[in-house]
């Protein structure tokens, strides 16, 4: 066992963790505002990645240079994804407003199938390779290979995560969201436009999800199966505690690192099952997560 490789893999794991945090924040955001746990968040992210792929193909066809990906591609992807999120909320979730959690959970499970199947029909199941934001070059730092796209992803994810968190805590919209989260009817009575709050949260969640998709898809390849990442990110959300943003960030690093270690010591297949083993352990030992409050388990 070479310690350099372990450190190298650890770094990769932590960087993946950054992207996990970005995905997780979408689940936490929607859950806090609307009390809906979105099992389909990963598939929403996957659709966002396909939007990015399509937009870059169109930009390429128009003969625009790589600059267009940054100036037009990414913003357009985020915009289209946010609208897509709003559409899901309006068409599927809004009619369920006020229903019991059982119905809500079932609907998001149904969404997984609809979105995954739709992606396969529209874009086929053949792997796509959208362009990476930063070249996929590998730098060597102190004898360790560092993937540039990964490092960039980590930084971007970190910045967006921080921005969203600050927004949630400080801005007027953030206050409205938190008010809605703690008591819907009171929020209504205080003049907060609750349906709009729901709309906005879904837009933000779909947007951040799409960004995560843009960062993740070029690293491997883009297939409808990318949405599965969202299911393993559930581990991050649970480990962090559903109501703690800092907990989620911490958990994202832990899960990312554990995956990398499983990959290193046990082989690639074991990496897939790590998040689920973590979930089961956490639920047995500390269901409210690392930093969550206890009453969350009474969902």
């Amino acid at each position: 066992m070479n310690i350099v490789y372990v450190i190298e893999d650890s770094l990769t794991g932590l960087m993946t963790g950054g992207v996990y945090a970005l995905i997780a924040v979408g689940i936490v955001f929607v859950f806090r505002a609307t009390k809906v746990f979105n099992f389909a968040h990963g598939t929403v992210m996957m659709i966002g990645a396909y939007f990015y792929y399509t937009i870059t193909v169109v930009l390429g066809d128009l003969g625009l240079g790589t600059w267009a990906i940054y100036v037009l591609g990414v913003p357009l992807t985020l915009l289209v994804s946010a609208l897509f999120g709003a559409a899901i909320e309006r068409i599927v979730m809004r009619p369920m407003l006020g229903q019991n959690p059982f119905a809500m959970i079932m609907v998001t499970i149904g969404l997984i199938s609809v979105l995954e199947g739709s992606a396969a029909v529209i874009w086929s199941t053949n792997a796509k390779f959208p362009p990476a934001l930063v070249g996929l070059n590998i730098d060597f730092v102190a004898g360790m290979a560092i993937n540039r796209q990964m490092l960039a992803s980590f930084l971007i994810a970190g910045i967006v995560f921080a921005a969203i968190t600050v927004l949630f805590l400080k801005s007027k919209a953030g206050v409205a969201i938190r008010a809605t989260a703690s008591d819907q009817s009171t929020a209504y009575a205080m003049g907060i436009n609750v349906p709009r709050v729901f709309s906005v949260t879904w837009m933000v969640a779909a947007g951040t999800g799409a960004l995560a998709g843009v960062l993740l898809a070029p690293l491997n390849s883009l297939t409808p199966g990318l949405g599965q990442v969202g299911l393993s990110v559930i581990a991050v959300v649970i480990l962090g505690g559903l109501d703690s943003v800092i907990g989620v960030l911490l958990a994202a690093f832990i899960v990312g690192w554990l995956e990398a270690m499983a990959n290193h010591f046990l082989g690639g297949d074991f990496k897939e099952v790590v998040p689920y083993a973590v979930v089961l352990l956490i639920i047995l030992i500390r269901p409210y997560g690392l930093l969550g409050t206890r009453d969350v388990e009474r969902v």
């Binding site: 609907v107 969404l111 199938s113 995954e116 199947g117």
Partner: peptide, 17 residues
């Protein structure tokens, strides 16, 4: 195959609503 997948998901959503 994907059409089946979509149909199952749609059924859940449509019946739930």
């Amino acid at each position: 195959a994907p059409a089946n997948t979509i149909a199952y998901g749609l059924l859940i959503i449509v019946f739930m609503i």
